[in-house]
């Protein structure tokens, strides 16, 4: 068996670029997904019964579809109804779309956890519904939902590997490409694993630090 890391150093530039693409698709998709998720959760909270039902169906539909299928639908199916997207854009949008329903569910559980009485107190003081959402509900639910959000972020980080199938030049695509071209599978896959591990380790550490920061008021 041979083990030759020179193939990695020789392709360091390409691998670094792929690393950046992975981070970009992951973070851009997640931020969009978080915003869409919050919007969906808020609409379910304030919207009428029909809207709630509609969003419920939407959530169940997306949750019931594998990420790869969503990706194919948008990237390969999209052009047949006029949606022509570059691979990168399609990738980011699919991550956003896919994650939005999970984030929506996380936010929904967070809203439910803030006691009703705190909102009543605010209402009686004349605070509006949106002010209460922003000033009372969101800051408190953040403590509760941060673990779930960061868990979802680590899952999404690994889901970006699927984007290799629609030719997004991210880590998995580039490293397996090098591997097949030069028959250095062990070396390239090892680097691939280390790269994902690194991202996820950083993410969970950031999550724990944030949890501690926003939960400071709970300390006696």
């Amino acid at each position: 068996m041979t083990f030759d890391l020179s193939i990695i150093t020789a392709n360091a530039g390409a691998i670094w670029n792929a690393f950046l693409v992975t981070i970009y698709t992951w973070l851009a998709g997640s931020v969009l997904g978080l915003m869409a998720g919050l919007l969906i959760a808020a609409l379910m909270l304030f919207g009428g019964r029909p809207l709630q039902l509609l969003l419920r169906v939407f959530i169940e539909l997306v949750r019931g579809t594998p990420f790869l299928v969503i990706l194919f639908l948008v990237y390969y199916g999209g052009p047949s109804f006029g949606l022509r997207l570059g691979a990168m854009t399609a990738g980011v949008l699919c991550i956003a779309f896919y994650s939005s329903v999970y984030f929506a569910e996380i936010f929904r559980s967070g809203f439910a956890a803030v006691p009703r009485g705190q909102l009543e107190a605010g209402e009686c003081l004349g605070l509006g519904r949106l002010q209460l959402l922003w000033r009372v509900q969101l800051p408190q639910m953040l403590v509760l939902i941060l673990p779930a959000i960061f868990n979802m972020l680590t899952i999404l980080c690994k889901e970006t590997a699927v984007l290799s199938i629609i030719t997004v030049p991210e880590l998995t695509a580039v490293l397996t490409g090098i591997g097949t071209r030069t028959f250095t599978f062990i070396e390239t896959l090892l680097v691939l694993c280390i790269a994902y591990l690194l991202l996820i380790e950083i993410t969970s550490r950031a999550g724990r630090w944030l949890e501690h920061r926003v939960g400071i008021y709970l300390q006696r």
Partner: peptide, 19 residues
């Protein structure tokens, strides 16, 4: 029904500022 993420002062100030 105090808002636990705000200080005592924050609780009292909130509506004065926003309402």
């Amino acid at each position: 029904n105090l808002w636990p993420h705000m200080t005592a002062l924050g609780n009292v100030t909130e509506a004065l500022v926003r309402v």
